[in-house]
């Protein structure tokens, strides 16, 4: 009976709150809005200063989020989209639905320079293979291909990290990417639809390594007090994922939307992200990184394919990937 009563209360309360405060609608991906994700804390902090009602709507992952915005077009209720990444920003700009962020002069703590007028970065991470402590992990794609180390990866067609790996190999090896994939074919235990399936299988002991992030061990260390997971450092460098937010041109709350984008760069937002989204903050907050992040590996080089080249590169790389793994 109790959940029912709560549900009813919630339904009655919603219109009352919406009446006296302007509503800022933010579309984001699924894991952002969960109770254990960054959403609730970000919402509280922003509402404390904006005099508005911040409402999240969740849609799958970053790519599904963009698909949804494209479906809705200019009629979208969304004022802000939060959760695209640098592999999607070119396609997002091409829709013409986004407008300038109005955020500049922020001293970002990103591995690359950031001067995009449309999108505001809020966190970032490196893709990496995660393994159990004590496992003698290979130190490069070539070494991995030659070893009998087993790995779990995600499908680039259905998964953000999967696409990240595709572009990682592409950025590191260019024309030789096909050779690398041929070499990796017998290391791959299986290819999963999304990150969750692959990571779940890895925790069940199905493979030596799983494609994830360099920050994954921090979750186990900080949330579970478990130091048994490590990320393997690859000498080619690691591919970057920078997660961004942008304001929609058709928003009926353009000022609030810009305020929210500016808010994302403040300590109030940035201090929430490392231990809820398990990524690096785009601008390190005053208190520094949470304890435990200092144990994470630091790649020698940050790899990133320029956003404008991504659409063409990714289609060619997908063909290479598919033919190498389909034999």
């Amino acid at each position: 009976m109790k959940p029912h009563a709560l549900l009813a209360l919630g339904l009655m309360a919603a219109p009352a709150m919406a009446q006296d405060r302007p509503v800022l609608t933010v579309y984001t991906y699924d894991s952002f809005v969960a109770e254990w994700g960054p959403g609730p804390q970000i919402e509280d902090a922003f509402e404390a200063e904006c005099g508005c009602d911040l409402q999240f709507t969740a849609a799958g992952d970053g790519a599904e989020l963009l698909a949804r915005i494209r479906l809705e077009g200019e009629r979208s209720e969304a004022d802000v989209v939060l959760g695209l990444d640098t592999n999607l920003t070119a396609a997002a700009k091409e829709t013409g639905l986004f407008t300038d962020s109005g955020v500049s002069d922020v001293a970002w703590d990103l591995p690359i320079a950031w001067d995009d007028p449309t999108f505001v970065p809020y966190d970032w991470g490196y893709f990496a293979f995660v393994h159990d402590a004590g496992f003698d992990a290979p130190g490069s794609f070539r070494a991995l291909a030659e070893s009998d180390t087993s790995i779990l990866i995600q499908d680039p067609r259905s998964s953000t990290p999967g696409l990240g790996l595709l572009l990682w190999v592409e950025a590191a090896y260019g024309d030789e990417a096909g050779v690398i994939w041929d070499g990796l074919a017998d290391n791959i235990v299986t290819v999963t639809k999304g990150w969750s399936e692959a990571y779940g299988l890895f925790l069940e002991g199905e493979a030596d390594m799983v494609l994830s992030y360099t920050t994954s061990p921090a979750y186990h260390l900080i949330a579970e007090d478990d130091d048994s997971k490590e990320a393997a450092r690859f000498e080619e460098g690691h591919y970057l994922q920078i997660e961004v937010a942008g304001a929609l041109a058709a928003s009926d709350q353009p000022d609030l939307a810009q305020d929210f984008l500016a808010f994302l760069a403040t300590d109030a937002a940035q201090s929430v992200l490392p231990t809820t989204n398990w990524m690096y903050p785009a601008k390190t907050p005053e208190g520094g990184l949470p304890e435990g992040f200092e144990t994470l590996i630091q790649p020698d080089e940050a790899l990133l394919i320029p956003e404008a080249e991504v659409p063409a590169v990714r289609d060619a790389a997908l063909e290479t990937w598919r033919s190498a793994l389909s034999q």
Binding site: G10, D30, S31, A34, G37, Q55, F56, A58, Y199, S216
Partner: peptide
């Protein structure tokens, strides 16, 4: 939206958050 998740969706969100 954030408030209308069903049990399978909520379970998937838990997996997605480690």
């Amino acid at each position: 939206d954030a408030e209308a998740a069903t049990l399978p969706l909520q379970m998937y969100r838990l997996m997605g958050a480690y």
